[in-house]
Computed example of a mutant assay.
Amino acid sequence: MTKILLINAGSSSLKWQLVTMPKERVIASGQVERLNLPGTIVKVAVNGKKTKEVVETLDEITAIDRVLKRLVTVGGVKTLDEVQAVGHRVVAGGTVFKEAIKLTPSRINQLQGLSELAPLHNPLEVRCIELLAQRLPGVPQYAVFDSSYFHGLPEKTAIYGIPYEWTKKYQIRRYGEHGISHQFLAARAAEQLDRPLSELNLITMHLGSGASITAVKQGQPFDTSMGMTPVTGVMMGTRSGDVDPSLVPYLMKRLSLETPEVVIQELNASSGLLGVSGVSSDMRDLHTAAKDNRRAQLALEMFVNQVVKLVGAYYTEIGGADALVFAGGIGEKDADIRAAIIDRLAVLGIQLDPELNTIGAEGPLQAKASSTAILLIPTNEELAMARDVWGLVSDEVVVK
């Protein structure tokens, strides 16, 4: 039995699990929500007992230290020496890393070198890796990549309409993100529909502070909303989503900037729901503010519209869908956003059951007359990560 600590550091939250492998038993789990925002929420579950506290603002590093402390104090482990491996979700592996790896100093440096592909994520994830190396010295660490799932995209959806020589020489392509989640959602949808995944067309929606949508055709990823970096696709908590690339040099001139870094940073960290609303990057705050704040309402409307636009495009691109899948913090917990999205898709014959949607339990949400199934599936990136990490750990045990 091997105890593996899984760290999933996102743009606004940090999720974690301590699992035993190969039995896939979760000893303890938790989530830190509203990172870098006032009123950070810390949730922990151990043996069915759940606790929740609201604390002053935590960043990712202080959140990890709190997780390690809680692991011992709430009974996940007696001492941290019981942790035998650590697995990290890493967003961008580029063309360098196409599958899960064991981390070494040289590979950590390579990850740092890929920061341009995920400026909000890779540097953060490297800092988390380095911190865990300090806190758990000698414990092997592993990386599982979001981008791995999308290496098989067909070329017609994977590359951009730029000179083909640039595509090949500079490895410019749609890497996609949230791949760990989308792969899990597709497999889980096949289980819920009781059909082979290879027969299914699906549209999986990972909607949270980071949001992405993926078209799955006959069980394989066919298209996805995020591109070479995670700033593209639908607007997100702080990321702009798709913008005209000419916006970058235009703003450089208007702001008297000599390099594009400031604009790129603003598109990543000060745009999206936060930038439009001027209120918050958190959907819960926007629902509250929207009653009296037109910009907050506008941000909600824009988010819904952009999701609908992509889902409609993917629906035709893959020749119809057997199911739409909602996941992520917004997709799983926000019944109003789900209803607004499906209402706009009524032209496709897709209908939501209002009662099932309000209950919001895992499983089908569609009305009987719906042309397409609608599934709510809480994503479990940590389980998918655990399986990949265990594959590497068990191989090392066999070799020894």
Rank of each mutant, 00 (worst) to 15 (best):
P154L: 05
P154F: 08
E155T: 12
E155I: 14
E155R: 11
K156C: 14
K156T: 15
T157Y: 14
T157L: 09
T157R: 14
T157F: 14
T157D: 04
A158I: 13
I159N: 13
I159S: 15
I159M: 14
G161Q: 11
G161Y: 07
G161V: 08
G161P: 08
I162S: 06
I162P: 01
I162T: 09
P163N: 05
P163M: 05
P163Y: 05
P163K: 04
Y164F: 10
Y164P: 02
Y164K: 08
Y164R: 11
E165I: 08
E165C: 10
E165Y: 09
E165D: 12
W166V: 04
W166I: 00
T167E: 11
T167N: 15
K168D: 06
K168P: 09
K168L: 15
K168T: 13
K168H: 11
K168R: 13
K169E: 15
K169F: 10
K169P: 08
K169M: 11
Y170F: 15
Q171Y: 08
Q171R: 12
I172P: 02
I172H: 06
I172A: 05
R173K: 13
Y175R: 00
Y175E: 00
Y175L: 03
Y175P: 04
Y175V: 00
G176N: 00
G176V: 00
E177A: 15
H178C: 07
H178E: 06
H178K: 12
G179T: 01
G179K: 01
G179S: 09
I180M: 09
I180S: 02
S181F: 03
S181E: 14
S181G: 13
H182S: 11
H182A: 06
H182L: 06
H182W: 06
Q183F: 02
Q183S: 10
Q183M: 07
F184Q: 00
F184K: 00
F184I: 00
L185S: 03
L185Q: 05
L185G: 03
L185E: 03
L185M: 09
L185W: 02
L185C: 05
A186I: 03
A186L: 05
A187G: 06
A187Q: 10
A187H: 10
A187N: 04
R188N: 03
R188C: 01
R188H: 11
R188L: 01
R188M: 02
A189V: 00
A190N: 03
A190P: 00
E191K: 12
Q192N: 04
Q192H: 06
Q192D: 03
Q192L: 09
Q192I: 11
L193G: 02
L193Y: 05
L193I: 02
D194W: 05
D194M: 07
R195Q: 13
R195P: 03
R195D: 02
R195C: 07
R195N: 04
R195H: 05
R195L: 08
P196A: 08
P196K: 12
P196M: 08
P196T: 11
L197E: 07
S198K: 13
S198I: 14
E199I: 12
E199H: 12
L200W: 14
L200C: 12
L200A: 13
L200K: 08
N201K: 03
N201F: 04
L202C: 06
L202T: 00
L202M: 12
L202P: 03
L202H: 02
